[in-house]
């Protein structure tokens, strides 16, 4: 009789446990784009930092979890399926995404490769992401469900060269290059070449002949002295075109993000541009009969000030050494065509 009572008690408990409804609660952590990027770009659920937590109650019985991520790229589009992951059966317990693939075994998963690629091309998470979590029993019957949406308001990241500035004059002994920092980067890669003539587009110049820097990976730092990675020597007076590309985590070289192309000029140490230009403008100002530009002349004659940059006001682009030379020749010949020189 005791045995029968004991069996009834155990059976009742089992029935009670199996009948107790499961609850699931999905929490999305506060995370950065950099944290989220590898998660979404490479479907690396465990490799990313803690992105989400799933609380399951009661922590009893054997369960499985299916997760689906949807992406809404912009306000005009709907949520499109991005990827699905599935766990194997595990003892019900709360977990973080970092447990998936580690303490909780992952099963078969699927991804929408074209949308993953589109995300990768954008370089950083953008738009809205919705995570649907299904709690299933061992037979894939749904026990509970929760969903959360996370929005990235930032636009797609772009890679821009900060230094050298377009058209700037750089010391041949060292050219400090710097570009905007991207998230989720494996490495940056540099390419630079000599521009042989102004008729050549910057792109053609970059892709022609043998580059002075030939797609050299430089790690994840966003600055470098270009002089240190030259494939061959450059010479004074040359115009150099330069571009950075970034390989994102999980990406391939074919979908690297490329920066704008920037051109700069190499200064001749034996005939420094700044001194020469300063002296030429000195002479020009001294030749003006009406003392126009005397403020600037006073500065230059003080002896310790030099001209560092001359740029077009309309575009902000620096004048090339040749343009400066041509302009100074023109103004020397036609000083009457100078309308005004004033401090800004």
């Amino acid at each position: 009789m005791k045995k029968i009572l004991f069996l009834l008690f155990i059976s009742a408990k089992l029935i009670f446990v199996s009948a107790q409804p499961y609850q699931i609660n999905l929490q999305v952590s506060s995370f950065s784009e950099g944290d989220f990027a590898p998660f979404i770009f490479s479907n690396d659920l465990s490799g990313a930092p803690r992105i989400f937590a799933v609380t399951i109650s009661p922590e009893q019985g054997e369960v499985k979890v299916r997760g689906e991520i949807y992406w809404k790229k912009d306000a005009d589009s709907g949520f499109d399926w991005l990827l699905t992951f599935r766990t194997r059966v595990f003892q019900a317990r709360s977990f973080f995404n970092t447990d998936l693939g580690n303490t909780i075994q992952l099963g078969r998963g699927e991804t929408n490769s074209s949308l993953i690629d589109e995300n990768r091309r954008r370089g950083r998470p953008s738009g809205e992401y919705r995570l649907d979590i299904y709690l299933l029993d061992a037979n894939d019957q749904q026990l509970a469900f929760d969903s959360k949406t996370y929005e990235f308001s930032n636009p797609a990241q772009t890679l821009s060269i900060i230094l050298p500035q377009p058209g700037s004059i750089e010391n041949i002994g060292g050219v400090h290059a710097e570009w905007t920092e991207l998230n989720g980067i494996q490495y940056y890669e540099i390419k630079a070449n000599v521009r042989e003539s102004a008729a050549q587009s910057l792109e053609d110049a970059l892709d022609s002949g043998s580059p002075v820097i030939d797609n050299v990976p430089v790690g994840v730092l966003n600055s470098i002295d270009l002089r240190t990675i030259l494939s061959r020597e450059w010479t004074p007076g040359q115009e150099i075109v330069f571009r950075v590309a970034a390989l994102l985590v999980g990406g391939t070289p074919s979908d690297m993000i490329e920066s704008n192309i920037v051109n700069f000029y190499l200064d001749d140490p034996a005939n420094p541009f700044q001194e020469e230009t300063t002296e030429n403008i000195n002479q020009l100002l001294q030749s003006l009969y009406d003392g126009l530009g005397s403020n600037l002349l006073d500065r230059l004659l003080s002896g310790n000030l030099q001209i560092t940059d001359i740029s077009w006001e309309e575009t902000g682009l620096n004048l090339s050494p040749q343009e400066i030379q041509d302009l100074l020749n023109y103004l020397r010949q036609h000083p009457d065509n100078i309308l005004n020189i004033e401090q800004d």
Partner: peptide, 30 residues
């Protein structure tokens, strides 16, 4: 040369920057 210079009637501006941070605007006819 004088004639060519007299034909110029477009105002252009260049910004000249000094190493002490001061900036000057030069306007000319081109």
């Amino acid at each position: 040369n004088q004639f060519q210079a007299m034909e110029k009637e477009t105002v252009k501006k260049i910004r000249i920057k000094l190493n002490n941070g001061e900036e000057f605007l030069l306007e000319y006819l081109d």
